[in-house]
Design a protein around this nucleic acid. Structure first.
Lengths: 337, 337
DNA sequence: CTGTTAGCGCCTTCAA
DNA sequence: TTGAAGGCGCTAACAG
């Protein structure tokens, strides 16, 4: 390894070759105005010749700041969302000449603390903490000791800035879409917990109905575990009741997938006889179902961007008034409505 | 931001408080033997009191080495595999007190070069380059200037070490499983390109047949685009031919998903009337299909681990003899066989 | 406008 | 076994 690491040139080398002082080189490096055009060009030429690049370790040591942003994830692993979030964060970080440093904690508190240690040691500009799904979280106090933004989660006490999906808007727009297509009896297969997505999407459902002057019918709203049989059975029940729904709003794309199964067994065609709309926009599922599923997209990419932007531009401080931003879930049009 | 960054303590602070020289502190920090037990404990106590942690920038500047590993990905974005690979890499890196620095290039060459610049500047221990799917790649020469390992891809000239899935073994084991369950006429819905996965899995198919003394019947092997209709049609054709196959080996889980559709329309039950085995083990699909899909798992986690391990322990040098490792694809048993 | 100098925080000789 | 001193590569303050 050492063999190949030909000692790269330093600012001294550049200064010498260019016949100037290191201070001057440093100035052109940092776009300081006090350099004549001539010397600047001269220095730039030598830099190019030598292929010189400043060592970030030296810069950090001197300036006490890095161009790194920590991304700590909590077992976000199994979902394809993770990478969208990472991409969004990276794209924004890159726009600020910064780079992502990644740690997945697997939901392990010791690892989380170790991750924070790392972030300190490296003097990152700040830290993102991303959860696997929209939820409240309880983070160690130490999180308040450096700039931090929560993604797809929020601290119980609301003292840290966070960005999450707008579940209500998502639910409302989904149902409004169904309404616009003439549906009046809209079934809703929700999930059983009380997580924000469940509560928010239901609220959106009600608001859309209310806005359209359609009465809320509790027999149309069911809760089912996210499991094949549970959803299958619920769908069958829903569709076999008198005055059956003509459209289905599903808690997420997996739910919709199993509802598809039930509808097929019921010989009900999508979308001709029953319209279906999902949530999440898990490409792998939604785009590959038959017919392709119309669904609401979770704004992971945008949340990643927002979080990094806020970290860099928002100078986030822990405080009771930390912003809690909700990003819209846009409709992704396919063929199930 | 500055407000919260209470200047953390330095090695000097520790030395002063402990009544020793900085050299001594440095020694206990680095487990140097020449420190008496007494002073070591004394220093350790002060370190704990102060919550002192060495700044990595200073260490790097001095030692010229970091504890960072670069991970450059090529638009690996859309697949859920990405995170498994990242997790594997991180877990192994962590075991070596190292951390991942991530850059996604979106297949953009300029970004790739910029990424390499970053890696140089940061003096990372080495770099992983991961592709979206198993394929040959052509990387810039600069890749040869620092320790690098390719993941899920390999350089055309084989000069860089790489780790990829063992497609042949995967195909062979998949088909062998079917054979063991008594199937003799096994359909294979392959993909149309000539990428390693396509070629390798076919080879595996043939080997399994040969090993079982079953003649290779070309009418059972089809190539279909990875698109719903193409697979659907192919499946129908395959199953309607005289002496139809009793089992189906699908190029990947998405292919299997659409084959399911065709089989259902043909009123053929899985696995009672037709056994199906997929490839990739995309949890989101495989586990959620009805019945859940038996499939071969792509070893992304393991490839990530192997790559980092080799980077750190293998002292990789670009050379014509760089190792090209293939990792097995284990069978994931569900309910479709 | 430019060169020189003093550290940033740490590790590593070199003496003691 | 330990302390002191030098320097890693860079920026910023200070003269000039």
């Amino acid at each position: 390894m050492d063999a190949m690491q030909k000692r790269s040139s330093t600012i001294q080398d550049v200064a010498r070759r260019a016949g100037v002082g290191v201070g001057t080189v440093s100035r052109v490096l940092n776009d300081h105005p006090n350099v004549t055009q001539a010397t600047r060009e001269q220095v730039l030429r030598v830099i190019a010749d030598l292929g010189y690049r400043p060592k970030s370790a030296a810069v950090t040591l001197r300036t006490r700041q890095t161009r790194e942003i920590g991304l700590i994830t909590d077992e976000i692993a199994t979902t394809p969302f993770a990478f969208d979030l990472i991409r969004g964060a990276q794209d924004e970080a890159w726009a600020h000449q910064s780079i992502l440093v990644l740690i997945n904690t697997s939901g392990n508190l010791d690892l989380l603390n170790a991750a924070l240690d790392q972030m300190y040691d490296r003097q990152v500009r700040g830290v993102l903490y991303a959860a696997m799904f929209h939820q409240p979280v309880n983070l160690p106090e130490r999180f308040r000791e450096l700039p931090a933004v929560l993604v797809d989660c929020y601290s119980e006490d609301r003292s840290l800035p966070s960005v999450v999906p707008n579940e209500i808007q998502g639910g409302q727009d989904a149902v409004a879409t169904l309404l616009q297509h003439g549906h009046r009896r809209i079934g809703f297969i929700n999930y059983t917990t009380d997580q924000p997505a469940v509560v928010g999407r239901l609220e959106g459902y009600r608001r859309a109905l209310a806005a359209a002057g359609v009465a809320y019918d509790p027999t149309l709203v069911r809760q089912a575990d996210i499991a094949p049989e549970a959803v299958y059975r619920t769908t069958i029940q829903l569709m076999q009741q008198p005055d059956r729904p003509t459209a289905l709003f599903c808690f997420n794309d997996r739910t919709a997938m199993w509802a598809y199964d039930a509808l097929r067994d019921l010989a009900l065609r999508v979308p001709e006889e029953v319209a279906v709309i999902g949530f999440d926009n898990q490409e792998l599922l939604a785009a590959n179902l038959r017919p392709p599923l119309t669904t609401m997209q979770l704004p992971h990419y945008e949340m990643g961007r927002w979080a990094v932007h806020h970290l860099i531009a928002g100078n986030p401080q822990p405080s009771p008034t930390a912003p809690q931003v909700q990003l819209d879930c846009p409709l992704v049009w396919r063929a199930s409505v």
